[in-house]
Design a protein around this nucleic acid. Structure first.
Lengths: 207, 207
DNA sequence: AATACATTTAAACAGTGTTCAATTATTGAA
DNA sequence: TTCAATAATTGAACACTGTTTAAATGTATT
């Protein structure tokens, strides 16, 4: 039956739809995306979309997931720097922040989940939460190690991890929302953020 | 001509429209809001809205501004605690956080400005930025006072204010997005957040 | 070639925001 | 009170939106 070929073709058309969607979003943003615009771009009739996607949200979800996965991938590329927990934490989050800032629309869309016509709170949110908890665990362990090494003051590592995550989170959103912040100031903000957080973590009575 | 009465009536109808809009939003959320639903509720025809508001966004903006103004009002009620900058900062932000969490939809909508079909980046955003910068200034001054009093380590007060604001910001968004976090844990998060931030601010060599 | 199956379409449905000429209600002056 | 002017309101229309579905087309397999 040539089923393999058929499957390939299906994937091809799915990709075409997503490509067209990407194009529309790139030009008019998520709110400018419509099924008819997509199908006009690939010379199909509107109905076709519903043979390859369940609905419009599924398309948006695919696009957003794409961007968010790029961000998540940047986390997993963080090398375990066994020696210095501060460096590991800082490096990891800096990468995360930069990745998030590189795909602001998708990051925002991901956050705005369950909000005005963006996403349903299904797979993507679940995935994000899972991935976040994984990051939180890694962060918590790094803090725990810092405490054991005597670099950080005694504290609840998991709670501290949440607090740090939260701060990073706010930093990203702030930068995205504010928009047009010069790179130089972004760097300073990141630098100061970690400085403050690490000072807060570190044991007292140090230089 | 009874112009005063006319003005009153206009305001009355405007209020009716907004009330109806509030009702729809309360039941179906912002994405469920439509002009026809509003006018059906007050027994008018759809066109009437455009004699009292420029467009749908103006209605949404009015609703969101309302919620956000409540939040901002909570800031201005913070008493200047000249003696203890930490207490002043903590009290102020705690109030702000609680107010934001009390009107999560509006707070989110305000943030999501320029995002999917929520708001235009006009008055509201400008207002938010102004109000924020005012808060930032107050926060910066509190930090400066803390430094002068020898409680905080020397630093750039304005930059530190931004960093702290950012963290608070992240905390709020996190709690709103996550949803269904027990009050008890929210309190712990707030408590820890400030603990970490203040530890970071405080001078070294202290108990 | 005929049948079975997958793909694609066109049209329709119910809804959206918005505009505008026409209608109705209200007002102030004669 | 009547009449003209003005303001308020309507209803229909326009150009969209997402989604469904019967019908038509295309494509393999027997």
């Amino acid at each position: 039956m040539g089923k393999r070929r058929q499957l390939l073709k299906q994937e091809e058309i799915k990709a075409n739809i997503l490509n067209a969607a990407r194009k529309v979003v790139a030009e008019e943003g998520f709110q400018g995306l419509s099924i008819r615009k997509i199908t006009k771009l690939i010379d199909y009739s509107p109905g076709i979309v519903y043979h390859y996607f369940q609905n419009k949200e599924a398309i948006i979800e695919a696009l957003v997931t794409e961007g968010y996965e790029r961000i998540l991938a940047s986390i997993s590329s963080v090398s375990r720097n066994e020696g210095q927990p501060e460096a590991e934490i800082k490096e990891g989050f800096t990468k995360y922040i930069r990745a998030a800032l590189a795909a602001p629309e998708e990051y925002k869309a991901f956050l705005l989940n369950e909000n005005p016509s963006v996403l349903t709170k299904t797979s993507l949110l679940a995935q994000g939460i899972m991935e976040r908890s994984r990051t939180l665990r890694a962060l918590g362990e790094a803090i725990r190690r810092g405490i054991e090494m005597g670099r950080f003051a005694p504290c609840d590592p998991e709670l501290m991890a949440q607090v740090i995550w939260t701060s990073v989170f706010g930093l990203i959103i702030k930068i995205i929302i504010e928009g047009n912040i010069p790179q130089e100031q972004i760097d300073r903000l990141i630098e100061q953020e970690f400085k403050l957080l690490f000072y807060g973590l570190m044991v007292r009575n140090r230089h």
